[in-house]
Every structure is written in C-alpha cells, then in structure tokens.
Amino acid sequence: MERGSPSIYTSTPEDLANLKTWAADYLQAYYAPRRAETDTETEQLKQNWETSLPTRLNQLAEILHIKDILAHIPETCTQLILIPHRYLHLLPLHALNLFPRFPDGIRYLPSCQLLHQLQQQQRPDFQRLFAIQTPTSDLYEEDIGAVSAITRQFPQPQVDILKKDKASKSTLLSSRETLDAANSLLFFCHGYFNPGSPLDSGLELADDTLTLEDIIAHFRLSNCRLVTLSACETGIPEIKRSDEYISLPYGFLLAGSTNVVSSLWAVSAAATALLMIKLYQELQQQENIALALNTAQCWLRDSTVQDFRAWLPHSRLNRIWRIKLDQYFHAIEAEKGVTEKPFESPYYWAAFCAIGKGV
C-alpha cells in the first residue's frame, strides 16, 4: 500500500444480510420490554437482553470480520476514530475487543466534516464544572455520591451545581453565563430517545424535559470541552428517515462542546456512577478524553470485588457512601468470592461512547 493511500476492506452481500438480521434481532430484543403487558414480563425481557449481550457482541465481531479488518491496520496506528453509517451508530463497536489494539483510545464522530470542524476549535481549559445532580426524586440516592465525588476534583470556586428540585429546566436555561463559562457539563439524570420525534428526545429535569430542540435553540457552550450525559439512551441517534445524524450528542456538539460522552441503552445507575467517578479521575491525569473513558470502562469491567474494596478508601466518595459500597462489595465477596467481577458484562460498561475531538 502506498503511503497516504486508503486501505479498503469490502464485505460480501452475505455479510450485509447477516448484519441486517443481527441488527434487527438486537433491536427487537432491546425494545421488547416496552411492549410487555406485565411488570414481570418486562423485567424478564430486560434480563434476557442483558444476559444475551456478550454473545450478541461476539456474533457481531464475527459478522463484521473485525480480526480481518484489524490485520489491515498498521501497528503504528494507536487510536481509532469510528464514523458509523446509519444503524451502526446504535452499536457499541468499541466493545468488540478493540481496546488492547488502540492504546490511545477509541472515539466516534457523526461525519468527517464535523471532525474537521472540531479540530479547529481549541478548548485547553478544564477547571470549571457545571453539574446537574439527580433532579428527580427516584434518583436522589442512585448516584451513590458520584456527583459530589466528581465535584471535589475541581477547584470549589469553579463548581456550579443544580441539585434535586433546584435542577430545573427553567433555572438551567436562565444560567446562560454560567453555562457558557463551563469547561465541563455533567448531567446525572434520566434520559430517553424518542424515535418517533427525535427533537423531543431529552434529559428529565425537576420541572420539565430538556429536549434536543431546546439544546440546539438555547445552548452556547463556547468554552466547553466535555459534556457528560450520565443517563439512559443519550447517545441513540435517529437513523430511519434519513442519513442525517440527529441525536443529543450532536445537539451539544452544535452548541459548541468539542466532546460528548453518552450512552446507547438504558444503563445501570450504580455501575454508571462508578464509571463516571473513574472517568473524571482519569481526566485529572490526562488530556485524552477517549482514552480516559476507555480506561474507566476497562477498570469497571476487570475489577474484582477485592479491587473495588481496596479502591474505596482512596476514592473521593464521602465516608457514608464508602461504608455502604464496602458492605455491598463485601456481600458479593461472601457469596461469590474475592475474584468475582460484578460489572464484567458489557451491559454495565459498554453503553458509553466518546464522541468528538477526543482531547
């Protein structure tokens, strides 16, 4: 291959047919709980999807011939930028055993054009945080103290938090100057994707939903390096009616942020909270947002209950949550042993993607 020339891997019509069948089965299984008639059926269908995810991802890697494609990539290539097409945006391609091959991180982008635009934007600062913390009452305890732990990693005069019933849409939209000054914007809340009306997809705040339409219309994030959407389904795009990439991350990128971390499915609150704490710990040590997320994901996936218990005293969690979590991990250890990895399944760690510039 000549220097600078592209290497093209061509799949077969059979590969495409297999991928379409796989994707249809995957999405049918994911959305099946919403069509269930009873709570028991709903929980069973959710559990079926979660437990089948590792097998499904192994099948996807085979259909996409990941090993063959990697053989075409020079060993000198240490980072991977994925620009998926249509429904491939819905899939956690980074979870197909790619982390060891790309030690400088894996990230996603909607298009090459957006990559070029983001490369022109400079966001060197990462000192000011604006956080939305558990705006609905069912989440008051679900973040296990994660948002408070994350805020302790920033200089306290540079931290702004809207918490519980104060985390309202009206208050957020009136905080234009504070939002514009933020280098990192963190949401720990409920989120959802509306396939019938993508612009109505959004983040549930104390009084109303912050929709994608609101973000595009009202947000100006001229100093923002990272928006973290620690919520369900915040990375799902609209892919049925056009080739346009319409999603919450795209809205925040249009608003000015150079990076967004978002999720591809309904996530576990506890696992997500731990992942976010570790992500922001990593970001205190390095500039590479994609690598920080990948490192945090590997940590969550590979840590044993013994590892978590050893980590807790050194975390920035408050004393009460350290005790509660230690008791939680101790109970798992007593039942399954010290080598048990409670979050090993990709369901717990693979939903989150880094979208954008990467640094």
Rank of each mutant, 00 (worst) to 15 (best):
F308Q: 02
L317I: 11
I69G: 01
Y30M: 14
D302F: 08
M1L: 12
P92M: 08
I355Q: 11
T171F: 06
L93R: 01
Y250Q: 15
T136H: 10
P198E: 09
R225S: 12
Q327V: 01
Q119F: 03
L173Y: 04
S247V: 04
T55K: 14
L283P: 02
R107V: 05
G235D: 00
L90V: 03
K169W: 03
R176W: 00
R152G: 14
H116T: 13
L283N: 02
T272E: 10
R3E: 12
E333P: 02
T38G: 11
P135A: 08
N294A: 14
R220Y: 03
D207Q: 08
L90K: 06
W265A: 00
N58V: 06
A23K: 05
A36W: 05
W49P: 02
E141V: 02
A269H: 12
E142F: 04
S263R: 00
P92V: 08
Y31E: 09
Q306L: 13
L172W: 03
L186G: 03
L248F: 06
L91C: 03
P74D: 08
I215P: 04
L45E: 09
L60V: 08
E204A: 11
Q158L: 13
P135M: 09
I323G: 00
Q327R: 15
Q306R: 11
D326C: 07
A231R: 03
L274H: 10
I161K: 08
L253F: 04
F126K: 07
S230K: 04
D326T: 14
I332K: 14
R101G: 01
A24T: 08
Y192N: 13
E37V: 12
T151D: 12
G356I: 05
N294P: 00
N48P: 00
A292W: 05
R35Q: 12
L53I: 06
P198Q: 10
A231M: 09
L254P: 04
L283I: 07
Q113L: 12
S201E: 09
L312Y: 03
C112T: 14
G356V: 06
L115V: 01
Y140P: 04
R56Y: 02
I73R: 09
G235Y: 07
A29L: 15
A269Q: 09
R3K: 14
E141C: 00
A167S: 06
Y9S: 04
I150H: 01
E141N: 13
V147W: 02
P13C: 05
G145L: 05
S11V: 13
V267I: 15
Q44S: 09
C77D: 14
Q121A: 10
L226S: 00
A17G: 10
S345N: 14
D15H: 13
L226H: 01
P54Y: 09
P342V: 03
L264I: 10
Q306E: 15
W321L: 08
S175A: 14
E333Q: 14
Y31V: 12
A351Q: 04
